[in-house]
Write a protein that binds this DNA or RNA. Structure first.
Lengths: 148, 148
DNA sequence: ATAAACCCTGTACCTAAGTACAGAGTCAAG
DNA sequence: CTTGACTCTGTACTTAGGTACAGGGTTTAT
């Protein structure tokens, strides 16, 4: 078994067949050679390539960014710094997302603590806040709860 | 000015006209009365409604969830606990997202620290990790970096 | 009365990362 | 030799939350 069919590749790499063709369209994996029938023929290299893509995705890179990383890694003019820069940008992206989520969480916790859990919905502090107290929500969501 | 045109409502509430019609289609705001011409006529209530939606979105609720919150708040059988439960589920959702992002961040930081920033891309520890060290990436991304 | 600004419906488009066919051809096992 | 599994291309669909027209009708200000 020196060459892999698309189905074998899919199973080995742990992705869908459709995903492989999609990655090919996106330029993330090279167009493979074909049999006379037109069937795609892959080498083990492509398994590695797909695993690269999967791991980069786990680190939060988009397919567009992964494409960039891949072309970087092929360009002899690239230095390690170029790659490191991408990673640092991604870290900053992730930190921003975390910040926003923590603001949301804080606001929600504040609201749920105000809610005793008894009484009708008409006096629910959570809904009341959504209806009228724009500032409280905004302050918390932005992570700068100044009052108190 | 007792009734608002869709344009006035959009400006007042700080959303797009298209967004208002979209919310109407989604059932997030009630179908308004119409003039003879077919023009939509809104009341101030709808401003409040749209602001509710905007704030709930800031707290991380999807439009589908907001629809649920709105029908809860109209149902007299709803109690405060029902709303509180939604908020708590949302908090858990947010915490899960934060956990995943922190795993990504940790893995990326580990990799960038290994990278001295000098040397050719062929020896970049970041790319090397993506190419072969599946476990290191996974461990960090999952937030359970066992091998210290 | 006419031009600018507004509004209507309906449909298509956008991003991201795929997934799901339809309709055809090919390969492998029994 | 046939049947089932596999593969091909091309297109449409999915989720979420909108945005952008096209091609009409209406309102308002001058």
């Amino acid at each position: 078994m020196e060459s892999l069919s698309i189905g074998q590749l899919a199973k080995t790499a742990g992705v869908n067949i459709e995903t492989i063709r999609y990655y090919e369209r996106r330029g993330l994996i090279p167009r493979p050679s074909r049999r006379e029938s037109g069937y795609r023929q892959y080498t083990r290299e492509t398994v590695t390539r797909i695993q690269f893509i999967k791991r980069a995705k786990e680190l939060g890179f988009s397919l567009r960014e992964i494409l960039e990383l891949l072309s970087l890694s092929l360009d002899p003019a690239t230095t390690c710094v170029d790659v490191k820069k991408r990673a640092e940008i991604k870290i900053a992206d992730i930190e921003e997302k975390i910040r926003i989520l923590q603001g949301m969480k804080k606001a929600l916790i504040t609201l749920t603590m105000e809610c005793k859990g008894s009484g009708p919905v008409s006096k629910c502090p959570i809904l009341e806040a959504l209806h009228s107290d724009a500032e409280a929500v905004k302050r918390s969501a932005a992570g700068r709860n100044k009052r108190s």
